[in-house]
Simulated scan of single mutants.
Amino acid sequence: MNHIYLALDFPTWEESKQFLDDHQLKEVPVKVGMELFYREGAYVIEQLKNRNHPIFLDLKLHDIPTTVMRAMRNLATLEVDIVNVHALGGSEMIKRAKEGLASINKQHETKLIAVTILTSMDEQTMNNDLQLQGSIEQHVTHLAKVAKNGGADGVVCSVHEVEMIKQHCGTSFLTVTPGIRLPSSKENDQKRVATPSLARRIGTDSIVIGRSITKANNPLEAYQQAQEEWKNGTSK
Rank of each mutant, 00 (worst) to 15 (best):
K26R: 12
K26G: 04
K26Y: 08
K26M: 07
E27R: 14
V28R: 02
V28T: 07
V28S: 05
V28Q: 05
P29W: 04
P29H: 05
P29K: 08
P29M: 10
V30D: 00
V30N: 02
V30E: 03
K31W: 01
K31S: 02
K31L: 07
K31H: 05
V32Q: 02
V32R: 03
V32K: 01
G33S: 05
G33F: 04
G33M: 08
G33D: 05
M34A: 10
M34C: 06
M34P: 00
M34K: 15
E35V: 13
E35N: 13
E35T: 14
L36W: 03
L36R: 07
F37A: 04
F37Y: 15
Y38N: 14
Y38I: 13
Y38K: 10
R39W: 02
R39G: 01
R39M: 14
R39H: 15
E40H: 12
E40Y: 11
G41E: 13
A42L: 11
A42D: 15
A42S: 15
Y43R: 13
Y43G: 06
Y43C: 03
Y43T: 14
V44I: 15
V44Y: 05
V44M: 08
V44N: 02
I45K: 05
I45T: 03
I45A: 03
I45R: 04
E46A: 14
E46C: 11
E46D: 14
Q47N: 11
L48C: 06
L48F: 13
L48G: 00
K49M: 08
K49S: 12
K49D: 05
K49G: 00
K49W: 09
K49I: 02
N50L: 14
N50K: 15
R51V: 01
R51D: 04
N52C: 12
N52R: 15
H53P: 00
H53M: 03
H53R: 06
H53C: 03
P54N: 09
P54M: 05
P54Y: 04
P54T: 10
I55G: 00
I55T: 02
F56K: 04
F56H: 06
L57I: 12
L57A: 07
L57N: 01
L57V: 06
D58G: 02
D58Q: 09
D58M: 01
L59T: 12
L59I: 14
L59F: 09
L59H: 11
L59A: 11
K60R: 15
K60E: 05
K60D: 07
K60A: 02
L61G: 01
L61M: 15
L61C: 03
L61D: 00
L61I: 11
L61R: 06
L61S: 03
H62F: 07
H62I: 04
H62N: 15
H62T: 06
H62L: 12
H62A: 14
D63H: 03
D63K: 00
I64V: 15
I64Q: 02
P65H: 05
P65D: 10
P65S: 08
T66K: 08
T67H: 06
T67P: 00
V68M: 06
V68F: 02
M69L: 11
M69A: 12
M69P: 00
M69R: 13
M69H: 07
M69W: 01
M69K: 12
M69G: 03
